[in-house]
Simulated assay, not measured.
Amino acid sequence: MKNIVILPARGGSKRLPNKNSMLLEGIPLLVHSIAYAKNNRDIIDEIYVSTDDAEIKKIALDHGVQVIDRPEHISGDLEPTITALQHVLESIENNVTNVIVLQPTNPLRPENLLKEAFAKFINNRSSSLFTVSRNHHKLGTIVQDCFVPINYKSGQRTQDLNPLYFENGLLYICDAKQIKKGIIMDKNSFPYLVNHVFANVDIDTQDDFEYAAYLLNKKTTL
């Protein structure tokens, strides 16, 4: 069984330019996920970064991981992650069993998350697994200028909310055969529950970046 990690890290970002190479506590954002992958070498055989950016490529190579140059036609803002994953698999040997996706924009992960999630993935025999977290907000939609609750009734206590969950992006594990078919998640994918403050970090803006820096600094000073 061969397990690889793919880090999709294109260069373009409109809301936070060059975020994947920005320094988070003195370390490029991308490198936090590279380091996490390296700390799980008992599971991971190879680490790949998929990018269209020269600076990101240099950072990845300097930190000892392999780089797959992503073509321009699959590097746009609206391009789904699956095409980058497929391109990596097409560019390397075909004996990959499982793919673990670590998004650089989720730089903070619980230390044992991958080991525990991978064990669940193998034991559950799922075609894929993704991490989720419980949402504790009173949610609703607006219809014709009226607020319509989704997960609660008016006057209901927060602790009694009907549970809803969100895809937090901390990690994805998928059978390589499924990725080749163009699928990361389907109705049979296993939702792995993560109740941790790191699940709230997904860097897309400067405020997100500063929140991640705060949590990382807090962690290292404990």
Rank of each mutant, 00 (worst) to 15 (best):
V65S: 04
Y48W: 08
P104W: 07
P28K: 09
V88T: 15
S13C: 08
L114D: 03
N40Q: 08
L161M: 03
T220E: 02
V132L: 09
L102Y: 14
V67N: 06
K181R: 14
I4E: 01
A199L: 02
R157K: 15
L108D: 01
N40F: 07
G155N: 03
S127Q: 14
V99F: 14
A117K: 12
V5T: 13
V99L: 14
F121I: 12
Y172H: 12
L193M: 14
G26H: 07
H73M: 03
I184G: 06
N20W: 01
E79L: 09
T83V: 15
G155P: 03
N94P: 13
I59V: 14
P104K: 04
I150Q: 09
L89Q: 12
H196S: 15
G169I: 09
D145I: 04
L164T: 15
I6T: 05
G64H: 03
L102V: 05
G76S: 03
N217G: 15
I150P: 02
H136Q: 10
D160V: 03
I100P: 03
I203S: 01
I203F: 01
P107H: 09
I4Q: 02
V143S: 09
L222W: 00
N106E: 01
L113G: 15
C146M: 13
N195E: 15
M1G: 13
S133E: 11
S50P: 00
M1D: 10
V148Y: 04
S133I: 09
F130D: 08
T97S: 15
S128E: 08
K115H: 15
K181L: 12
N135F: 08
